[in-house]
Simulated scan of single mutants.
Amino acid sequence: MIYCVVDENGSAMERGAGMVPWWSFTKSVIATLVMRLTATGQIRLDDFYPDKPFTYKQLLNHSSGLGDYSFLPEYHRAVANNDKPWPIDLLLEKVDVDALRYSPGESWCYSNIGYLLLRQQLERLYDTEFAILINDVLVKELGLSSAHVVKDKQAFELLEGSVDGYDPSWCYHGLIAGTVKDAALFLHYLINGDILSNEALTQMQSMLPLNVDVGERPWTHPAIGLGLMCNDDNSLHTVGHTGMGPGSVIAVHHFKQQSPKTIAVFTQGQDQAEVENKAVQLAINGL
């Protein structure tokens, strides 16, 4: 297990080292970049995504009605067999992307497809590819020198906990990797107000309560923000994101407590509760 604790002043304490996949913590980065576009007026949260019946806000908080490729047994078989990733058009056809599971805004369903659409719109509006955008913002602007987009099998195999033969293009919204320290620092900078305006940050943390069974995970009042998983409880008030993929899992969460901490925990395996409960333990007790 590798982890890092960042205190309210931005000082980081680490245990373990190595480059790791950030999995769905990538969504928090995508959402942050979308929120920057709202600050410049290029989009508004309540604007409809081009030619679609849902808004940017509904994509960001998974209330768009979109389904997901994670529901397709064919997808999981193809990944397990190390097949070549499907072209995006074929993926959207297999998911039947226009057949919404519910009317936008009327329910909630976690959707990687929604974040694929957001990534595509980022590339159009910033007029650059996702990997360059990540390098410009995370590396050049924020100094998170380890952060990069993983594009192929060879690059993925250099990461901790990698699975032989996995093609990261199966992660359709893009896969950022880096150290756990840089993951924690990104979230620290975000919540500290170093990346977004106060207005945009407040909007990003607007919470939609979720009626879901979290099992052994530590969240007592789970909620979703805009690209952020949250626990809306005064005794455990958190914002962040957990991510999981073949071979490993990562939790990156900020704890709003008397001595705020931002914590990233990574381990091999598929147990999201393990890394989340470790993050809670570190928030309460420290290293």
Rank of each mutant, 00 (worst) to 15 (best):
94 K>G: 06
248 S>W: 00
218 P>W: 00
114 G>T: 01
278 K>H: 12
26 T>F: 00
54 F>W: 14
252 V>Y: 04
104 P>F: 11
280 V>S: 00
169 S>F: 11
142 L>S: 09
222 P>Q: 12
232 D>C: 12
61 N>P: 09
242 T>I: 05
115 Y>M: 01
236 L>K: 08
48 F>N: 14
6 V>I: 08
12 A>R: 03
258 Q>L: 14
29 V>F: 04
221 H>V: 11
153 K>M: 08
4 C>V: 15
255 F>H: 10
255 F>D: 10
8 E>V: 10
118 L>H: 05
258 Q>P: 04
69 Y>R: 02
21 P>A: 12
45 L>E: 00
111 S>Y: 02
85 P>Y: 03
108 W>H: 14
159 L>E: 00
254 H>M: 00
164 D>M: 06
12 A>T: 10
88 I>P: 07
52 K>C: 13
273 A>L: 01
231 N>T: 14
111 S>E: 02
190 L>M: 06
178 G>S: 05
2 I>L: 11
277 N>Q: 09
107 S>W: 07
224 I>F: 15
133 L>K: 01
262 T>D: 04
165 G>Q: 03
117 L>C: 12
45 L>N: 04
132 I>T: 11
42 Q>D: 13
246 P>M: 07
122 L>S: 04
181 K>M: 15
258 Q>C: 03
134 I>H: 02
287 L>W: 11
127 D>F: 14
230 C>F: 05
283 A>P: 01
81 N>W: 09
2 I>Y: 01
138 L>H: 01
61 N>E: 15
62 H>I: 12
125 L>Y: 07
142 L>I: 05
270 Q>V: 09
52 K>I: 09
157 E>K: 08
244 M>C: 13
195 I>V: 15
91 L>N: 11
41 G>P: 01
33 L>G: 04
114 G>A: 02
69 Y>H: 15
238 T>D: 12
72 L>F: 12
201 L>D: 13
48 F>C: 10
57 K>P: 08
36 R>F: 07
123 E>P: 12
241 H>E: 05
80 A>Q: 07
185 L>Q: 03
146 S>V: 05
168 P>I: 08
240 G>T: 05
53 P>E: 01
119 R>Y: 03
215 G>P: 15
209 P>M: 11
226 L>N: 06
284 I>A: 13
